[in-house]
Design a binder for these strands. Sequence first.
DNA 1: GTGAAAGCGCTAACAG
DNA 2: CTGTTAGCGCTTTCAC
Lengths: 336, 336
Amino acid sequence: MDTDRDKSISMTDISRMAGVSVATVSRIINQNGRYSAETERRVRDIIEKYHYTPNMAAKGLKTRRTNFVGILVPDITNDFFGWIVREIQNGLRIHGYMAFVCDTDENEEIERQYISMLGAVNPSGMIIISGNTSELGNGLGDLPAIYIDRAPVVGAGEVTVIESDNYGGAKLAVQELYEKGCRRIACIRSARVISTYSSRYSGYRDQLELYGLYADGRLDLRVDEITFQAARQAVEELLDSGAEFDGIFGTADWLALGAVEALKGRGLRVPEDVKVVGFDDISLASLSTTPLTTIRQKTDVLGRTAAEEIVKMMQGSPDWKHRILVDVSLIRRETT
Amino acid sequence: MDTDRDKSISMTDISRMAGVSVATVSRIINQNGRYSAETERRVRDIIEKYHYTPNMAAKGLKTRRTNFVGILVPDITNDFFGWIVREIQNGLRIHGYMAFVCDTDENEEIERQYISMLGAVNPSGMIIISGNTSELGNGLGDLPAIYIDRAPVVGAGEVTVIESDNYGGAKLAVQELYEKGCRRIACIRSARVISTYSSRYSGYRDQLELYGLYADGRLDLRVDEITFQAARQAVEELLDSGAEFDGIFGTADWLALGAVEALKGRGLRVPEDVKVVGFDDISLASLSTTPLTTIRQKTDVLGRTAAEEIVKMMQGSPDWKHRILVDVSLIRRETT
DNA sequence: GTGAAAGCGCTAACAG
DNA sequence: CTGTTAGCGCTTTCAC
C-alpha cells in the first residue's frame, strides 16, 4: 500500500549499513559512551549522508518523555503576549524543545480542551501565561510548570511563577499621575479576579493612600473584557455619570487606549484635561494617536527566564517552587 | 526508580479491567465497529472512570501519522499574523489537531532549524504563512502543505495557496480614491518582488487605466522596507520633488500610515488636500490619529480556510494543488 | 566495546 | 463479535 510514504531511514537501517547493532547506534546518538571512535565515525557518516533524524514518537514512547512543552497563552493577537512567546521559543529552541502554542482566547472551555489534548501528547513541561487555570492538574498531572504573569489561585509557594512587579508598577503609574497634578484618579481593571490586575489595583490604592487621597468607589471601573471597546464604554459611562476625575490608570494598555478614545470622543483633551497611564507597553502604545505613557513590562526577560526555568526543571533540577519578580519602568509619553 | 511518574493507565489496563482484549478496546476507541453494545458500554465506563487518554506517541509510532501540524509564521508579534494563527488553531482544534507554532522572526536560519526539528516529530501537515521557504522539502518530504499569503517560488500549480484578492483590493482602493475626486494617484509599494505587492500594483495600474488616467512614473514610490518610516520618507521626497498628486494608495497599512504622517507633517490636510487608502486593516488602522480608510483582509477566512484545507488533505483527500482567493473589502474611514 | 532481547502503548491483519 | 499476534523505532538492562 505505502508507495514510498517515508523516505526517512531508521536506526535499524543505520545499524545494518554500519554493520553494528542498534544498541551501539543508540549509544552513539545519545552519547552514552561505550563505543569506539572508529565505530562512531562510521555511524555518524551514515547519519550525515542520509540526513537521519531520530523518530521522536518512538523515543518518547520508550523514555516516557518528549521534547515538547505546552504553552498556554490567553490572546495571541495581543503583541504583548506575542513578544513573550517569541522569547520563550528562542529559549526553548536552543535546547531542542518544540512548543505547542495554544491560544485560549481567554476562554476557559478552550483552555480545558487544550489541557486535555496536551495530556495526550505527553509534554515534558508547561508554561502558562496568564491563564484561568486554577487547577490545571486535571489532565497534566504534576508536570513541571511555570506560570508567567498571572498566578494560579492555589496556595502561594505551590508553583513557580514569574511576574512583573505589578504592584510597584501601579504605584509608579499613580505617582506619575499625581506628580503631574492629578488628584482624582480613576482606575480601570478586569472584572474577573486575576492576580495581575488585583496587584495593580492594590498598588493603585496604596499609592493613593500614601498621598492621602481618597479612592472614590465610583472611580473604580471594572470591565468584563480586557478590550479597547469595553474600556471606552466604561469611561463614557463614567463621563455620563458626572463623576469628576482628572486622571485614569488603565491596568492594561488596551484599557488605557480605550479610555483615551472615550475622552477625546467627548471633547476632552489628553493630557490637558485628563491624564492617562497604561500598563504593558504594547506596540500600539507608542504609535497611537496620542502616544501613551505607560508602565513597560520586560517581555524579553519574562519570556527568557520562563524558558530557562522550565528547561532546568525538565532536565531534572529539583523544582523547589519559587517566585521571580521582574522589575518594570515608567515610559513617559504624551498622555501625561 | 519511577515513584509514580505516570498515573495514566494504558489500553492494556483497560482491556484487563473490562475482561476483553486490547484489540477490542482499540476498535471501540477508534469506532471501527465489530464490537457489541454491551462491551462498548463496559469499556467506555472504564475509560470515563479513569480519564483514559490514548498515548499519541504509541499511536503515532504505529500508524505513522500524528495529530500535529506545524505552523511557520514570520512574526508572531504582528497582530495580523496573530489573528490568522488564532483562526487556524480554532479550525484545527475542533478536528483534534495540535499545532507547533514556530515563529521564525523572518530569519531563514531559524526557519531551517524549525523545519529540521519538525521533521523529527513527524507532523501530518504544514501551514506556511508567508515564509522565505522556497524549498522546504529538505526535512519535510512531501507533507501536505498550505501556503498563506505568499506563495513559494516553485512553479505555480505546484502547491496549494490561499491568498487575499490583492488585485481586486487594489482596484477597490483606487476606485474609492477616484470617486472621492482624486485624479493624480500615487502608489507606495515594496521594492522587493513579492507576489502580494506585485498584484496590488497591477490592480492599481489597471484601475487607473480604466478611468483613462495616466500612471505617472514619478508617482510610483518604492521602498526598501515595509515600514512606517520608509513610507514617510518616500512621501516627503515626493513632496519635495514638486510632483503633484491628490491621492495615495499605500499597498500596506504601515505604508499608508507613514504617508499620512508625512502629509500632515508638511501641513497638508488629510483627506481634504490628499486622500489615502491602505491595505490589510491592522489594528492600528482604526486607532491611529486619523483612522485609515483601507482594504480589509479577512484574517479569519484566511486562517479558517487554511485549517479546513489542511485537515482535508491530512485526512487523505486527493490534494490536487489549487489556489483559493479570499475577497477583500473597503473599510471607509477618515482618510478619504 | 558490543550485541541480544525485552518491551513502551497502540494498531491491524488474520483467525476464529 | 472477539482474541492472537506481530511489530512501529527506539532505549536499556544484561551478558559477553
